[in-house]
Structure formats: structure tokens, C-alpha cells
Design a protein around this nucleic acid. Structure first.
Lengths: 255, 255
DNA sequence: ACAAAAGTGTTTATAATACACCCATGA
DNA sequence: TCATGGGTGTATTATAAACACTTTTGT
């Protein structure tokens, strides 16, 4: 639990910028599908994207880094702002929601939560295997959920997730997709599956392989004997330096 | 002058969301170059992008529409959010700046202005000929300035402009470039010049023409006799319906 | 030997690029 | 009739798409 804005066991709201929040869409890739890190609210069948607030002497980006660190245990992740959600009716809940669900945090905090919030959405791409998901003060579960099978989300978080996913799709050639979402060593099939999941269409096996090999950003390693009755695939890793220098002009092997 | 938050000749700050602002990068195209609508602050050699604040019962998008309307006299323009600027040191000015420059607005407003602001940047593309630039309460000039020759800008407005221009460049195939920035009828050369200005490189004349004609979004009109000693160019206009249906998938004639 | 999936090659179609050609215009 | 810029065509190259062929693996 992030406890930085707690004081005498009550939430100290004074140090926070009012009316402004951060929401992080944290994306991972698990074998064959994209997943998103979600929080399940205590005693509710209601989920949300991890979020947080901004300190008065904090850059907004730093606040996003903090949220990410608190939920995943990870630092130095890819993190990028993608949209700010500012509709005036975006935070509506049934009356008494906060009082029922988090009475222990005190009425000052509850009043504070009831104000209108403008929230800036951040996108992060992470390797699920490295993550250590931790619930926050308002949730009891923090879990990877398939983006194809999302539960009921609070507020406008379904919109936030949708925007984030379309951001990834549009920016696919300019985001560190492979290097952020895959483990250090991976097969060509994994990499292709990843791109197929994001684009939501199948890509020709042979052409995909040819194109990405031509970019010279992959290092080929030993074969991986899977035990299956077929040819074993090579393992690959990224040449980080080449990957990053290519990223600026776009890793344009998909159109 | 926008006077909606004035009351008894003083600025009434109560109705506004504190700490949150809008900045509009309004882009036009004048013959051969991209221009941006800037405000010159009273008695200062200091310019800024038009901005404004958000009412407590106002969507952020509506606030941006209002700013645009107030500065240009125009409604129904292309307007799109592109980034939110949230560094904690982004509003620094020398001490006494507000007191010296706008004492007439009262100390409540000045105190209010001194708080930290998180500002969301909006991009608008407009036809310069249709605009009627109007200064706001803090400026005495509202003028189109070439983006290649920007004056000293206040706060982080140079960063805001830079981000907006790179946004246009990256999103070029998904923005209503031609239809927003050009007059109703235009020559092929104007259209090409526009794209060249945005991309900051020259495009082959023949290929450009062939590609855009193949999209079937242009309607050819009468020739325009320029008085020059050469073949007269055709005038074109956009087929709005076809243009808009193409935009979703990207007007992809530039790579 | 066979099925299955990996790695690579081939063919075809499409698109990008460079630039050549002819035409209209006013001096 | 000449220079200038506009409209269009062509040859070349590069890229994309479809899919065929070969290789490796375990049964």
C-alpha cells in the first residue's frame, strides 16, 4: 500500500493537487494474449485501472512513475502519457459509495474524493514475469486480466482502456513493443503473436520473419527444444542499441 | 474579450477549476508557410498561445471550444487534444509580474494565477482567411506568426508549440489537413506546399498529384488564369463526404 | 515414414521514385 | 518563339503478399 499521503492513520490530503489524478494502463503479454493490470475494489465486483494523485511539488510524470512502482514493484519501465480525460461527469458513483466502502479513511478524504477529477492516462508496457502486482488501499486484488475479456470497470475506465489500446495500435511502430513486453529471450512465434494481438489480425509467418530479420535488431541464440514433434525454433533477443536507434524513425515493419 | 468569469469588474474565480488550464495551438496556412495564432502580452515583448480556464460544470473539450471561439470568432473547427503539460515548474515568472501587468484584475485573481497549473494542449487547424483574431484580457495583439520564426514565448509555450507541430507531423495522415487549412478552392501547388511545410521536405510534383488524384477526394474546377507566363493550374475543392470517410483509415498518400 | 511447425525461397502484384515529355500561357 | 510552370506518362526500383519448398523434430 502506498502510504505516502497518510498521516495519523488518516489520509492527508493537503499535500496533493486537488481535482487532478493519474490513471495507468499497464499492459503485459502472456503467451498468446494482451493483458492489463487491474485492481478489484474491496467487497465489490468492480474493477479499475491503477491510479493515483499528484503531489504539489511533483511533476505529473513522476506521479505516474510512482503509481507504476507501487503497483508493479518496478522502476525504469516504459511509461508514456496518452490522453487526458476531462468530462465533468466522468466520476459519478451512487451516493454513499465512499462512506460505505472506505469509512476508515476519514471524511476529509472522502469529501476530497467526491470532487470532480480530471485524469491523465499513462500507458506502460511491461514484462509480466518481472512484475509483482500489489493491491492499493482501495482494492483487495491486483491481477492481470485479458484485454479481450474485461470485467465491469469503474467510472470511465473502460474508455481509458479503449483509448490506450487504440493508442498502442496507432503508435505500434513507435513504441518499444517487443523489448518491453517480451522476456529477454523469445521465439519468433511469440513476437509475431504479440503483434497479432495488438493489431487484432493475423500476419503472414514467412513475411513477418523476413521483415524483422532484415531490420538487424535481433540476435539469434540457441534453438529451443520444445518436446513437440517438429522443428525446434530459435530463440532471439533484441539488440538494445540498434532497437532504440531504430525506434525514433519507427520500427516500420508493419503497415 | 471573454468576460464570462468577470463579476463587478473583478475576475470571479469561484466558478473555475483551480490549477487546470487549456492552451490552444491554432495553426493556419498562408500561401507558403504554416502560421500560428499568438497573443502579445500588454507592454511586453512576450507572446503566448491562447489559453483559458475550465468551469466547474464544463467538459474540458467545451472549454477548449470556448477559447478557440473567443480568439478566432469561429465555431465548428477541427480541435483535438494532443498533450497535457504537468511539470511543477512550468509556470515560473519573475516575482511581481502579475501585480505590475494586470493590477486592475484584483489580488484574488492574481493569487489564483500564481498557483501551479497543469495545462492541456489542444490543436486546431483553421483557414486563416475566415478568422477574426481578437486579443484577450492580458494581450494587446492577436496575430498570425510564422512557425519558422517564433518570438520569445512565455512559460513553456515553446515546448507546447513544438509538441503540437510534431503531433501534426506524426498524425498527418489522420488529420483533416487540407480541408481545414485551405480555402474552399485551391491549386494543386498550394496543397503540395502545405504538405511540404508540415513535413519540412520537398515532395515530387508529379507523384504527389497522381497519388492524391487517385484517392478521388478532389473535385476539379475551372482553370485559374494567374497572369503568369505559363500554363494555368486547375482549381480543386475537396469532396467532403469522401474526405471524411477516408480520414478514419488515414489519408495515406504520404509516407 | 509421418505430421507438424520452423526456416527460407519464389513468384506476382502493387507502390514508390525519378524524371521525361508535352502543353498552355503571356511576354 | 521562348521561358516557365502545369499536367501526365514511363521506366526503374523497392516493397508487400501469397504461398511453395525444404528442414527438423518426436512419435
Amino acid at each position: 500500500m502506498t502510504n505516502i499521503f497518510f498521516k495519523d492513520n488518516k489520509v492527508d490530503v493537503k499535500g496533493l493537487i486537488p481535482g487532478q489524478s493519474i490513471d495507468c494502463v499497464i499492459i503485459g503479454f502472456d503467451q498468446h494474449e494482451l493483458k492489463i493490470l487491474l485492481l478489484k475494489w474491496k467487497n465489490k465486483e468492480l474493477w479499475s485501472v491503477p491510479g493515483g494523485f499528484i503531489y504539489k511539488n511533483d511533476d505529473m510524470d513522476s506521479a505516474a512513475v510512482r503509481v507504476l512502482k507501487n503497483r508493479t514493484g518496478l522502476d525504469f519501465l516504459f511509461l508514456e502519457q496518452f490522453y487526458t480525460f476531462g468530462n465533468c461527469n466522468r466520476g459519478k458513483l451512487e451516493p454513499g459509495f465512499w462512506e460505505e466502502n472506505i469509512p476508515e479513511f476519514g471524511s476529509d478524504f472522502i469529501d476530497w474524493l467526491k470532487q470532480r477529477f480530471i485524469s491523465t492516462g499513462y500507458l506502460s508496457l511491461v514484462d509480466i514475469a518481472k512484475c509483482n502486482p500489489v493491491p492499493d488501499f482501495i482494492s483487495d486484488v491486483c491481477e492481470w486480466i485479458s484485454v479481450d475479456n474485461l470485467p465491469k470497470l469503474i467510472f470511465d475506465h473502460d474508455l481509458i482502456v479503449k483509448k490506450a489500446l487504440s493508442h498502442i495500435k496507432i503508435q505500434i511502430n513507435y513504441l518499444p513493443i517487443g523489448i518491453s513486453l517480451l522476456p529477454k529471450k523469445f521465439t519468433m512465434k511469440s513476437l509475431r503473436n504479440l503483434y497479432e494481438s495488438i493489431l487484432n489480425r493475423s500476419l503472414d509467418r514467412g513475411n513477418f520473419q523476413k521483415k524483422i530479420l532484415k531490420l538487424k535488431i535481433l540476435i539469434r541464440h540457441e534453438k529451443q527444444l520444445t518436446g513437440a514433434a517438429n522443428k525446434a525454433p530459435y530463440l532471439y533477443s533484441f539488440d538494445k542499441a540498434k532497437y532504440k536507434s531504430l525506434l525514433d524513425e519507427g520500427i516500420g515493419f508493419i503497415n
